[in-house]
Each structure stands twice: as C-alpha cells, then as structure tokens.
Write a protein that binds this DNA or RNA. Structure first.
Length: 225
DNA sequence: TAGGCCATCTGGTCCT
DNA sequence: AGGACCAGATGGCCTA
C-alpha cells in the first residue's frame, strides 16, 4: 500500500514537475502574456451588451467583429457574412442593424461566459499544488484539469490509507474498527487508481495510464520516447 | 516554420 | 423569446 502511495505521489509530482520544467524553459511566455492578458481591456461593462474593446492578443479578430460600430468593422462584419454565405432563415427575418445588435449582445454574453470559465480554472490552479511563480508559465487548461483529477485521486488514496492505518491501530488496542471496510470510492467510481497501472511503462504509456489522455500531457513529460 | 495554446466569433441546440 | 451551453472555425502569439 505504501508502495502504491509513493507511486501515486511520484506520478503526480512527475506530472507537475515535468510541466514546470517545460514551463520554466519558456518563461517568457507567461511573462509576456500574463495570466489574464486581455481580460481587463475587453471585459464588457456592467450589464454590458455593449461591444468590448479589442483584446491585445486577438486584436484583429476582435476588432473585426466585436468592436465598436465603426465603418471598418461593419465592413468586416459584412465580409464575414458574405464569406459564410447566406445565413439561416432566422437571419433573413431580422433587419441587418437589429441582427448585428443581437449578434453583438450574444457575443458579449459568450465572452462573459468564457471569462467565468477561465476564472474558475484560475481558482482551480490556485489550489492545485504545483510551482506557483510569476516566472513559471501557468498551467494550460487541459493540464489543469488532468492535474486536478489526479490530485483528487491521490488525496482519496491517501485518505483511504489513513483510514486503514487508524483501523489497524484500533485493532491493536482491542477496539472494534470504526472504519468501514469498503474501499473508498470517490464520487461513486470504482476504486481504481491510475497511478499504479503505468508505473513501469515507458513515457507515452505511463502518461496515458495516469492521465487518461495519451497525447495531452505526454509532450511535457521528461521521458520522451 | 510547425505546433501548441488561447480568445473570440458564430450557428446550432436545449432549456426556462 | 432569450439565455446557457457547446463545438467548429479563425487568427494571433509564443516556443522549439
């Protein structure tokens, strides 16, 4: 059991360290972009259906269709419409101005939704133990989710081991074990911990074994095939 | 220069 | 009808 525990920790640490190592090599990325580049400048105002200012990174695209109602952007909007061909029947029913206004409103809502999603991801990054540092590139979205999943599984495993230890100690004192003997099954899942499966496998297989996504993080692994 | 990551736009679908 | 959610497309920035 202790072996399993150490394997799980190793796997988790390997995952986070390999990512950090990769990130440290390219710290300019995080430094240049920052965690929230483009957020303040393009967030719509309160109650804002109004068009957002163009974000620095996606300036051309954002300016093209979500920016102010300049003539250039209207032209861009029309170009985009022409490129996509005739719209659905719903488009034909609306007047162009009204249609454009509705589109901008929908775009702003979607932007807000994605910002909320990113805020939640930032919150998740904040509680995942990995090297939080201004000089280290922040975790990608997929890495954040996979790391969080593995961290949860690792914690569940640690808790399970702790319960077994308590039960063992209680037995030693002649007490009935107050702990359930059922294996811990977080969120109703089977008590299968992915860390052990790939402990002796080469990198791609090991990454696949404990991440469930063979290609998502393997590129960050130090054991390149 | 290719590939990774990201933000944004957009149309479709489902729900209230 | 309007909002939330989703997935595809597009284009920019960055790194190896």
């Amino acid at each position: 059991m202790a072996e399993l525990q150490s394997l799980s920790e190793d796997a988790y640490l390997a995952l986070s360290h390999s990512y950090v190592a990769a990130a440290a090599a390219g710290l300019a990325y995080g430094a240049a972009r920052g965690p929230d580049v483009g957020r303040d400048c393009c967030a719509p105002g309160p109650g804002g259906d109004g068009p957002a200012a163009p974000a620095p990174r996606a300036a051309p695209a954002a300016a093209e269709s979500s920016g102010e109602q300049s003539g250039d952007e209207d032209d861009a909007f029309e170009r985009r419409r022409r490129r996509r061909g005739p719209g659905p029947a719903g488009d034909a029913r609306r007047r162009p101005r009204e249609q454009r206004s509705l589109r901008l409103s929908i775009n702003a809502r979607e932007r807000r939704r994605m910002h909320d999603l990113n805020d939640a991801l930032d919150g998740l990054r904040a509680v995942i133990p990995y090297a939080h540092s201004p000089s280290v590139r922040k975790l990608s979205k997929i890495a954040t989710l996979l790391l969080a999943k593995n961290y949860i599984l690792m914690q569940a495993q640690a808790l399970d081991e702790m319960r077994r230890l308590v039960a063992y100690l209680n037995q030693g004192q002649g007490l009935a074990a107050p702990v359930t003997t059922a294996p811990l099954t977080p969120f109703g899942q089977a008590a299968v911990y992915p860390f052990s499966a790939g402990a002796s496998l080469p990198c791609p297989d090991k990454c696949a074994a404990f991440s469930g996504a063979p290609s998502a993080l393997c590129k960050h692994c130090t054991e390149k095939p």
